[in-house]
Design a protein around this nucleic acid. Structure first.
Length: 474
RNA sequence: GGCCCCGUCGUCUAGAGGCCUAGGACACGGGCCUUUCAAGCCUGCGACACGGGUUCGAAUCCCGUCGGGGUCACCA
């Protein structure tokens, strides 16, 4: 089975797996209807074609592409919709033999009805009607005997006992020819449900992974893309924009989104439960979901809303569950020993706790914990300029260090009290001390709460960093 | 262009004739809190595409207009 999973399929299957979207039977699982790949079922497809031929629902056709082109152009010139004349159709063996003798090769086409209409009752769209005369005599089998997707798909669905065909709206116009095949083969039609398309941010056009450059002009989209790229680069992924971007599932996996957040968000695109409920566990969603509440208009992908849903779930995740999700990012960024020491793990755990809601995706740990794991923090130039290189800061740092030298226990509450004392003694504002100390020990202006940060760092490292920052202070 | 689908705040949506001076969420604006950044809390802005009907009454039903989208392969 595995060798049949080609390069294009593997990422799709692994993407679904990551999202937690599994299947009862099929590739990788097996089941009573195996095999599950179209390429392995060609015998059944060919048999179906023979049946259609025998029952007069299909015919052998010997037209060349040029013949068809000619007819198409003529119809266009006459302002009429194109409909093949069946001029090169062979409804019996003798005719076929004649075409073959003339050097033509044949395909099999559907002999579509030229009157009447197909009415389907779509679970999402309701009653939809198609006039048969608008349908082309589509090819279902090539000259080499291989069958085309629409034929294969209908036969496979039937053989698999598929009851519901639920797919994107772009397939709505394919339904008549598929229904014709099914009906002609004597199958009972499955229930159809055509889902709204996921559209581009701020638009109603179908989202396409080939139009990334255009989406990047959208501020929200750009922000998400850049945030992800920053993380990817730090773990050595060297992402390329055309394969690593927010329309690809793997982007979210690499950056550290929670798969269920994506599922939940996507569910909300075109479906609602009621006038207010938006969050569902997997079990709740399975119980609550119905086709009836699917919308029929396209829904545009909103990166900001996805972000909010992700925030919600990450927010709710216990530290014990965040830890194994985040550790790999630090490992891949080279900030941890291999394997990480118990001490390192303990530090990361504390950092996760201290960073709290600031960690939106697992990869964010890189921005909020890296300075705990290095000997010397990278000093951000702008941060130094803003918070250290100012008159009087040096004295503040010295005083803070002095106070921290004896603070006991070296824990957030005591550290806060100690630093507040420095503030009062010098008639400063809390921020004056906090901002300066933060930049001195982390190299940055933003981060977890300073008292927690110092506690995690520990007295020795805190003092050492304060000391090292002195030359930079004014 | 033909056929088909769709049209409520910027976005996702609730709404199946009176419950709608149209509700919720995200985003956005203002405020509070505050050691940064987040989070949280309060608050504001903001929509029934348009035009005709039907009805005592329409976002909800009908018709038309306009607008948007999908699809038109010997691809899947």
């Amino acid at each position: 089975m595995a060798r049949n999973v080609d390069e294009a399929l593997a990422p799709i299957l692994s993407g679904l797996e990551w999202l937690g979207i599994d299947w009862d039977e099929g590739p990788g699982v097996g089941g009573p209807h195996a095999p599950y790949f179209q390429s392995q079922r060609s015998a059944g497809h060919k048999a179906a074609v023979e049946r259609l031929l025998a029952s007069g629902h299909a015919y052998r056709d010997f037209a060349t592409p040029d013949d068809l082109d000619e007819e198409r152009k003529a119809a266009q010139a006459a302002g009429k919709p194109f409909l093949y004349s069946r001029r090169f159709a062979a409804f019996d063996d003798a005719t076929a033999a004649r075409f073959v003798a003339a050097g033509r090769s044949g395909v099999v086409r559907l002999k579509m009805p030229r009157e009447g209409a197909l009415v389907i009752d779509d679970a999402v769209r309701g009653r939809v009607e198609f006039a048969w005369e608008r349908e082309q005599d589509h090819v279902i089998q090539r000259a080499d005997g291989s069958c085309l997707y629409h034929l294969a798909s209908v036969v496979d669905d039937h053989d698999f006992d598929i009851t519901h065909v639920i797919r994107a709206e772009e397939h709505l116009s394919n339904t008549p020819r598929q229904a014709f095949i099914a009906l002609s083969l004597g199958y009972t039609l499955p229930a159809y449900a055509h889902l709204p398309l996921v559209a581009e941010p701020g638009s109603r056009t179908k989202l396409s992974k080939r139009k990334l450059a255009q989406y990047l002009k959208n501020q929200d989209f750009k922000q998400v893309a850049e945030h992800g790229t920053r993380i990817a680069e730090r773990i050595g992924l060297a992402p390329e924009a055309d394969t690593f971007n927010p329309v690809i599932v793997d982007f979210y996996r690499a950056v550290g989104y929670l798969p269920w957040a994506i599922d939940n968000y996507l569910t909300l695109l075109g479906w609602s439960y009621d006038d207010s409920r938006e969050f569902f566990s997997r079990e709740e969603l399975v119980a609550a979901f119905t086709l009836e509440r699917i919308n029929s208009s396209p829904a545009s992908f909103d990166p900001k809303k996805l972000w909010a849903v992700q925030d919600h779930y990450m927010h709710a995740l216990p530290v014990d569950e965040k830890l194994p999700l985040m550790l790999p990012y630090l490992e891949r960024a080279g900030l941890l020993a291999d394997p990480p020491t118990a001490e390192q793990v303990a530090i990361v755990r504390q950092a996760i706790e201290a960073a709290g809601d600031r960690l939106k995706v697992a990869g964010d740990i890189l921005a909020y914990a890296d300075f705990f794991l290095v000997d010397e923090p990278v000093m951000d130039e702008a941060a130094v300029k803003q918070r250290l290189a100012k008159p009087g800061v040096r004295d503040v740092l010295v005083a803070a260090a002095e106070s921290l030298r004896t603070t006991a226990p070296f824990a957030p509450a005591a550290i806060e009290a100690a630093l507040k004392q420095v503030v009062e003694a010098r008639g400063l504002k809390t921020g004056d001390v906090v901002h300066a100390v933060r930049v001195a020990v982390t190299g940055r202006t933003v981060g977890p709460g300073l008292y927690e940060t110092l506690a995690i760092l520990g007295r020795d490292r805190s003092l050492a960093r304060l000391d090292r920052a002195l030359p930079l202070a004014g």
